[in-house]
Design a protein around this nucleic acid. Structure first.
Lengths: 251, 251
DNA sequence: CGGGCACTTGAATCATCTCAAGGTTTGTGG
DNA sequence: CCACAAACCTTGAGATGATTCAAGTGCCCG
């Protein structure tokens, strides 16, 4: 009895069917039988520490990854060593989709804090999707979402001011935290000012100044990486007209 | 005999198997039998004139579209009426992929000149893909490419100067024309200075000045919307380090 | 031929960047 | 547990590239 318990416990602990991220992740919309078949493909490598790489630009695409805990940034490097951050990835989000085009990763993904992932071997996922329309449709859906999200990011960089960019960014992070059951009002940013600046197309100093300004105006309370949204209405105003706040959570 | 000829002619003219864009478009990599099954789904609506809409933001996603001729821009509108251009679409490229996330178009697509498309009803495409793994993989590949392309656009807006942005944009357009069998050295832009400016996150005046500067420096010859690349090497330099020129075509 | 639209060019302004210095937290080794 | 170094963040002042506002040109279409 102890033996089965010892064997089963990790399996149950990590099963997709028990995962709190199910609704945000690949298995969303799958029935139990299909989820079990997907489950059998999933590997769960050891957790990564801050700064470790999940994959690197130029690597052959072997697996897709879903974030289980912690967070990642993905970025491209220019040959001059500069990096451009393409996005941040929270639990439940998939990484590596851009590699589907030609089977090669176009970006590097590194952990922002201690983080764990589920890895799904891409060829076997594709095989399984060939036989499970529901999984296949879910894959399409996720890729479509991802394209839509990248397009939002494009709009952000378009012609917005520093304040609009930072406000939009914070609202975006806030609603992603809320989706995962965390507070939309108060959260810890896992990325540095430099990372935020790079992502938003600004300098570190401008981001810092903008945080200070929003704090002075009573919109935020900022304590290093801990952010509290004091006046969500004014933050939304600061984000500019084109932002439509989907979640009005105030938890 | 005349009769069959009259009936068959348009069918042959428009068949995927005869289309010069096959290698850039959805049927790429499909065998003849599969291509024929895809072909049966494809509708070819009347051509659109400059300014006409292929679909609008908020429309239910009914079809995916592939550009046959002409070109499109896709853009989002803020509630204040402003528009942000997300991309330009040349023949062989697919439109509407971002809608896969939630079945609704997130952008508006309008014709930049007289343009024609192939329309593939999305539900029937999905059904067919469920039975044809090769089509399904091709769909994944195209979506992956699209994500990768959007990410390149993101890098462009990151922290580059006006000259770097415009140079990168022109090299990008140039290689896309080359892929389609047109000259990489000399081409007509189908979009206005305003559209380019909007896409690049600049003002119309800055784009105009930058064109003038590149012409004065002997890098380009610019005659209204006709562009000739005189010194590709220096244009690549102007685009900045992080751009890697995939096509070295000089046709 | 004339009116309108797209584009060019100039001059002044402004937001952000750059450079520079100082402060605070974190982690490490003594 | 303390001291020190490194990393991270904040703030200020001056420089700069892009924007704004404004005027003028030339091409295209009716």
């Amino acid at each position: 009895m102890q033996k089965t318990k010892l064997i089963d416990f990790p399996a149950i602990k990590t099963a997709c069917s028990k995962c709190s991220l199910q609704q945000l992740c690949l298995p969303q919309g799958l029935n139990n039988a299909d989820m079990e078949r997907l489950e059998r493909l999933v590997k769960r490598p050891r957790p990564l520490h801050r700064g470790e790489y999940l994959f690197c630009q130029g690597d052959r695409l072997k697996s897709l990854y879903a974030v289980r805990s912690g967070s990642f940034k993905s970025y491209c490097l220019g040959e001059d060593g500069s990096e451009k951050i393409l996005g941040f990835h929270l639990p439940g989000e998939l990484l590596g989709l851009a590699g589907l085009g030609d089977g090669e990763h176009h970006a590097t993904a590194s952990a922002l804090d201690t983080a764990s992932v589920c890895a799904v071997p891409f060829d076997r996922l594709q095989e399984l999707a060939d036989h499970l329309p529901s999984l296949n449709h879910q894959l399409h859906r996720i890729m479509g979402q991802r394209i839509a999200r990248d397009q939002e990011a494009l709009m952000l960089l378009g012609d917005k001011s520093a304040q609009e960019r930072l406000a939009t960014f914070l609202l975006n992070i806030s609603s992603r935290f809320a989706e995962r059951g965390f507070s939309a009002r108060e959260f810890n940013l896992s990325m540095s000012r430099q990372d935020i600046a790079n992502y938003l197309g600004l300098t570190l100093e401008t981001v810092s100044r903008t945080f200070s300004q929003l704090q002075k105006d009573g919109v935020l309370e900022v304590d290093r990486r801990l952010i509290r949204i004091v006046d969500r209405g004014r933050l939304t105003d600061a984000a500019g007209a084109s932002f439509t706040d989907t979640s009005s959570a105030t938890r």
